[in-house]
């Protein structure tokens, strides 16, 4: 690459970084503003908004609610997604392509459409709006990601590994538990983190399928409607930091696991 090209590339890169991080930085900064209104200039600073987040029973409860939905929906998607990946990677069967297409479909349907469809369907079959309905919608939405990640890992599993386990006296179930599953572990952990973040972050499905108890994004949205205040910045910043920490930790640990294997 020419020298000029390199310069331009780095200009674009830094422009991108600025574009990505300045809004986040502004959001974090505004949380420290000692005033009821968001906007420059910041004349005096305070920690009250941040301290308020940990003092606010409603916010803490919403956090817990969102987390609980994320964990439950992730567990369901991991079970379903892994099972589908094993099914699709295994022996060929009639209708395999149809199952494959159906597995991936939830990832392709626009969020708003699937949310409305879920809402209508839930009413038809008598599922009450609330936690159960949200978990259900999140789980369905996340299955394709789990299935894709696990299938990618399965495709690198040497056939001889399972045969060696059988050869040494393991029946198919023991082979799966002691050889296949540990081999899939990095993929399953990576997919879990991804599902947790997707669910925690989801607004549309949670909004349409929720009852009066809001998830965190829904709460933030509700607060926005009653007026912008630095409290929202503080809540968002705490959520941002928690998810970022989780993401970085997951990245590092999956890289470590890949090195071991």
């Amino acid at each position: 690459m020419t020298r000029n090209g390199r310069v331009w590339l780095s200009v674009f890169f830094w422009a991108f970084v600025v574009y990505l991080f300045v809004p986040l930085l502004l959001m974090i900064l505004m949380g420290f503003k000692d005033s009821k209104f968001i906007g420059f200039p910041i004349r005096s600073w305070t920690l009250d908004w941040y301290l308020g987040v940990f003092d606010n029973g409603e916010v803490i409860a919403t956090f817990g609610y969102s987390l609980w939905i994320a964990v439950a929906s992730t567990l369901i998607s991991i079970l379903m997604g892994t099972w589908l990946a094993l099914l699709l990677s295994g022996r060929r069967f009639v209708g395999r392509f149809a199952v494959y297409a159906l597995t991936l479909l939830p990832a392709l349907v626009p969020g708003i459409i699937s949310a409305i469809a879920f809402r209508i369907y839930a009413r038809q079959i008598g599922i009450e709006p609330g936690m159960g309905a949200i978990i259900w919608a999140h789980a369905v939405h996340n299955v394709p990601f789990v299935a894709l990640v696990v299938m990618a890992r399965l495709s690198t599993l040497p056939k001889s590994l399972g045969e060696a386990a059988r050869d040494l006296g393991a029946d198919p179930l023991v082979t799966f538990m002691r050889v296949t599953l540990p081999y899939l572990k990095p993929a399953i952990i990576g997919a879990s983190i991804f599902c947790l973040l997707l669910s925690f972050d989801d607004f549309v499905r949670s909004f349409f399928l929720g009852s009066y108890e809001p998830t965190l994004p829904v709460l933030i949205f509700a607060k926005l409607r009653s007026g912008m205040s630095p409290e929202i910045n503080a809540i968002s910043t705490v959520a941002l930091i928690l998810t970022a920490v989780l993401g970085v930790w997951a990245e590092r640990s999956s890289r470590r696991m890949n090195r071991e294997n």
Partner: peptide, 20 residues
């Protein structure tokens, strides 16, 4: 008999050692 029942063991071409 399936492989796990046979008193036969195999050394595989790619060794097939369990990586974990």
């Amino acid at each position: 008999q399936p492989p796990e029942k046979r008193k036969v063991n195999m050394v595989f071409q790619d060794y097939a050692l369990f990586p974990h």
